Amino acid sequence: MKIAYVFSSTTSQKILNTMIIPQLEKGTHGVDVAGMFFFMDNTFFLLDGTEMGDRLRQIQEMNGMLLMACDQCAIERGIEEKLIPGAQIGCFPQLYAALGGVGVDQVITL
């Protein structure tokens, strides 16, 4: 099964940092993650030079998943040029285009 995550809530950091990332690093997550999309302050998760950003970059390098920050959210926070290598910024049209051909079975919003 292929899934995509949308991180929009304030509890996303705990879920991502203590559950999803460790499972992806160990290969025990149980599904293929095709992409992750980050809203509001969650865009800071993709900030270059942070522990979470570095871990997400390493996972992306292993499995090729899409990492995308909401363009307006990243710009509002002044980080659009400070994201980890490989991360993109965009809105729903770019997200749909990027994930459209990979066969996502389910989108989970946290």
Score class of each variant (00 low, 15 high):
81 E>R: 15
19 M>W: 13
35 G>W: 00
89 I>H: 10
51 E>G: 10
80 E>H: 11
25 E>R: 05
61 E>N: 03
14 K>T: 15
18 T>H: 10
51 E>C: 03
71 D>C: 12
48 D>E: 13
89 I>C: 11
51 E>L: 05
34 A>Q: 06
39 F>Q: 10
92 F>H: 13
108 I>F: 05
81 E>I: 13
104 V>E: 05
60 Q>T: 00
73 C>F: 03
28 T>Q: 10
30 G>T: 12
63 N>S: 02
109 T>Q: 04
62 M>D: 11
13 Q>F: 14
39 F>P: 04
13 Q>C: 13
24 L>Y: 08
94 Q>S: 10
66 L>Y: 02
12 S>V: 04
67 L>F: 01
99 L>M: 09
32 D>P: 10
78 G>V: 12
97 A>I: 05
33 V>R: 00
45 F>G: 08
5 Y>H: 12
103 G>R: 01
106 Q>G: 12
106 Q>A: 13
69 A>D: 02
58 Q>P: 04
24 L>K: 07
94 Q>L: 11
18 T>V: 14
66 L>G: 03
38 F>S: 10
56 L>I: 01
85 P>D: 08
90 G>E: 06
8 S>W: 02
32 D>C: 10
8 S>Q: 13
64 G>Q: 00
103 G>C: 00
73 C>K: 09
28 T>L: 05
19 M>K: 15
105 D>Y: 07
60 Q>N: 02
110 L>N: 06
13 Q>E: 15
3 I>P: 10
28 T>N: 09
76 E>S: 15
87 A>H: 00
103 G>K: 00
75 I>P: 07
102 V>M: 06
102 V>E: 03
80 E>R: 10
96 Y>K: 15
87 A>I: 01
39 F>S: 09
6 V>E: 10
88 Q>H: 08
36 M>N: 08
97 A>T: 07
79 I>N: 12
27 G>C: 09
64 G>E: 00
104 V>A: 11
56 L>N: 03
97 A>M: 06
50 T>V: 06
61 E>V: 01
85 P>H: 08
70 C>V: 02
54 D>Q: 08
101 G>V: 02
106 Q>H: 14
6 V>N: 12
54 D>T: 11
84 I>F: 04
25 E>G: 04
48 D>T: 07
94 Q>G: 12
93 P>Q: 02
55 R>Y: 02
29 H>A: 14
31 V>Q: 15
32 D>I: 09
75 I>F: 12
30 G>Y: 08
67 L>T: 00
24 L>M: 14
109 T>M: 07
41 D>W: 11
108 I>G: 05
108 I>T: 06
94 Q>T: 12
1 M>G: 15
87 A>N: 01
47 L>C: 09
94 Q>H: 09
17 N>V: 09
12 S>I: 08
88 Q>F: 02
95 L>I: 08
102 V>W: 01
45 F>Q: 07
8 S>E: 07
103 G>T: 00
50 T>P: 07
5 Y>E: 11
82 K>R: 14
12 S>T: 12
92 F>A: 13
